[in-house]
Computed example of a mutant assay.
Amino acid sequence: MQKAATSFPRPVIGIIGVLLISLLFVLFIQLTPTTPPANSPRFAEKVNLALRRTAHHLLVKAGDTTSRIPPVQQADDHTFMIRLERAFDYQPLPALLQASLDRHGISTPYDVAVLDCAKGELQLGYTIRDLTGQEPVPCGGRDQQSGCYTLKVTFTPPEAVPPQTSLWWVLAITGLFAGVAYTVWRNVAPSAPSGPAPVVAASDSPQPLRFGNSSFDPANQRLMSGTTQHELTYREAKLLHLFVSHPNQVLEREYILKSVWEDEGIIVGRSADVFVSRLRKLLQADPAVRIAAVHGVGYRLEIRPDNQA
């Protein structure tokens, strides 16, 4: 029989699938933001802790280790303020604030304003985008007058933040791995022929099979019954080859269906009856050969020994 084309081992395909799903899960976890919604109590709590930490380090750098840090005031869902009763060094503020926000897992964009307590006028300030640019943070190095200041941090509302690109990264990487997997499969598993393969390869059966007064060439799917030649279909040839390979033996119906039609994926019980009827008509020119039905069991190819060539 012709050997089937080498296919990519199913266990390897399964392993690749599991690895791909695991990788996508990890990427999704890493790329998905973990910051709580800006209008949630958890977000406000984290910002409160981050601002108090920032105020503490600013006062320590200014030489104040005893003053009470006042509570953080929240003007709305996105705006938080903390009052510092004495002047502080503005230069380390951007790095200190960013480190405090990072410590509490806050990645929402924000703007910073330093206001004087008396009039609420803006004295110094910057935006988060200034930290990622090549230029120094604005207002750095400027002198501050002694007095009271309010540190105001305003976070960008969720609707103003561009959509996260996590899903696009996942889709892009999925497409990349799918392409790689398909390329590997194409290189390892040769393409199946467009039509059904011959019943047997020519090298497996160089000579026609003779039975009764007939002969059968499986490689070319050709039957010579008596003096009449017939070109067989793939299923006709496969069924005849099964019978000729088991002369005078009862073949159960289930065995016939499994041997001849299993590669279709769907087995129809009446298929054997239909094709046996076809072969009987093709073999009727040879009186030494008969396909007999064995009631309730299957079929048998009967060959008369005295007429067999």
Rank of each mutant, 00 (worst) to 15 (best):
A118K: 05
T79L: 10
A99M: 07
S100Y: 10
L124T: 02
P136D: 07
R86L: 03
G133K: 10
Q91E: 13
L131V: 08
R129H: 11
D143L: 15
F155Y: 15
T132L: 14
S100T: 08
D143S: 04
A113K: 13
Q73D: 12
Y149W: 14
D89Q: 06
Y110G: 06
S100P: 08
C139K: 07
D130A: 12
Q145W: 08
Q123G: 03
E121P: 00
L124D: 04
G125S: 04
S146I: 01
S107D: 15
D130H: 15
R129M: 14
R103Q: 13
Q134I: 12
I128M: 13
A75Q: 11
V72W: 03
Q73E: 10
V72K: 01
K152A: 15
A95Q: 07
S107P: 02
E135L: 15
R86W: 00
L93G: 04
A99K: 14
T132C: 00
R83Q: 07
P138Y: 09
T150M: 14
V112Y: 05
V112P: 01
D116T: 12
E121M: 08
G125W: 05
P94M: 09
Q98S: 11
R142W: 06
L84A: 05
Q91I: 10
D130E: 14
P138K: 02
K119I: 04
E121H: 02
Q144H: 04
R83V: 08
Q123F: 01
C117V: 10
C148L: 03
I128P: 00
T132F: 15
L122N: 13
E121G: 11
E85V: 05
Q73W: 03
P94T: 07
L122E: 11
D64R: 12
Y110H: 11
L101D: 03
R68W: 01
Q123K: 09
P94S: 09
Y149T: 14
L101P: 10
A95N: 05
D102N: 12
R142S: 01
L84R: 07
P138E: 07
Q91L: 14
G140Y: 09
I128L: 06
G141A: 05
F88Y: 15
A75K: 15
A95C: 00
R103G: 00
Q91K: 02
T156F: 08
Q74P: 00
V114Q: 05
S146G: 14
Q98L: 12
S67W: 04
D130F: 07
Y149S: 15
D102T: 01
I82D: 06
I69C: 08
S146V: 07
L97K: 05
Q73L: 04
F80I: 05
G147Y: 09
T132S: 15
P94I: 12
L93K: 04
V72Q: 04
A95H: 04
A118F: 09
Y126V: 05
L124Q: 06
G125A: 03
V137K: 01
T66R: 11
S100H: 09
E121S: 09
P109M: 12
G125Q: 02
D76C: 01
D130T: 08
D102H: 06
D64N: 14
E135W: 06
Y126A: 02
T108C: 00
G133L: 11
R68C: 00
K152G: 02
F88Q: 10
I69K: 07
L122Q: 15
L97F: 11
T108Q: 11
V72D: 02
